[in-house]
């Protein structure tokens, strides 16, 4: 089976600093995969390579078999990848509904159609009561939800979520997890998430890739990853006697 997303030997350096070193992994269609690792491991850089913000020095990114390496972010979106930003990027002077309408216009023929679709996504992310507010006035958890609503509204095949659970309360995290799982089950969405909240990672992901210093150090099912000595070492350091 061809995976929906295939990252092949991607390397990327900034001014001689190697941020990603020969990273390869797959995400299967309808799968939920997680990308974890300590701060500075290169997770967000990898997201930006997939989303077209950075062109990799080496390697390729394939979506459904097609090579999308080096395309612009808007072209990547057209190819079927929706993404959120770790440092949230709301359209501050627009209302919450308008924010999502912009995204929904991607697949809609008219503004009215996009607006109607946007309302649906606001409901899904429990933002419907905030529809008329300016995005600048939202709390951080709500801004995170807005990021997800916006990315979803572009109608992606693959959703890239960059730390969308950070700052959510445990009960809110559980609701977000349930929402994402339901989306996958109902719409066939594929999800790749960067997450520090292990509660969410363990509950959601079927497969985890671990990055450390720009290299893939482990990969596998969640139960295996949490017992992998290499992973424990990178998070907790050497346990010398």
């Amino acid at each position: 089976m061809v995976p929906l997303l295939r990252v092949e030997g991607v390397s990327k350096s900034f001014r001689g600093l190697l941020a990603l070193n020969d990273v390869s992994f797959d995400v299967v269609e309808r799968g939920i995969a997680a990308l974890i690792g300590p701060n500075g491991a290169g997770k967000t850089t990898l997201f930006n390579v997939i989303a077209g913000v950075f062109r990799p020095d080496r390697g390729a990114v394939r979506l459904g078999g097609a090579d999308i390496t080096g395309r612009r972010p808007d072209q990547i979106c057209h190819a079927g990848i929706g993404r959120t930003f770790q440092l949230v990027k709301p359209f501050a002077q627009m209302t919450v509904l308008e924010n999502v309408t912009v995204a929904a216009l991607h697949g809609a023929r008219s503004v009215a159609e996009a607006k109607a679709a946007a309302r649906g996504f606001l409901e899904l992310l429990e933002l419907d009561t905030r529809a008329g507010q300016h995005a600048a006035n939202l709390t951080l958890p709500d801004r995170k939800r807005l990021e997800v609503a916006r990315a979803l509204a572009t109608g992606p095949r693959l959703l890239l979520l960059d730390e969308v659970m950070a700052g959510l309360r445990p009960s809110e995290t559980d609701r977000m997890v349930a929402t994402l799982r339901r989306l996958r089950d109902e719409t066939g969405l594929t999800i790749l998430l960067i997450e520090h909240v292990m509660r969410a990672v363990m509950a959601l992901s079927e497969r985890i890739t671990v990055l450390h210093h720009g290299e893939k150090i482990s990969e596998g099912a969640p139960e295996r990853i949490v017992r992998d000595p290499a992973v424990l070492e990178c998070y907790l350091g050497d346990q010398e006697p």
Binding site: A51, V53, R72, P73, D74, C77, H78, G82, R83, F85, K89, P90, F91, A92, Q93, M94, E98, N99, T101, V102, A103, L105, H106, V111, A114, R150, A151, T154
Partner: peptide, 20 residues
Amino acid sequence: YYWQAIRDDPEAAEALGINL
């Protein structure tokens, strides 16, 4: 809608498929 999105955050607008 696209203009205002670009005005408020070009990078986010581009990620939503808008050709800047």
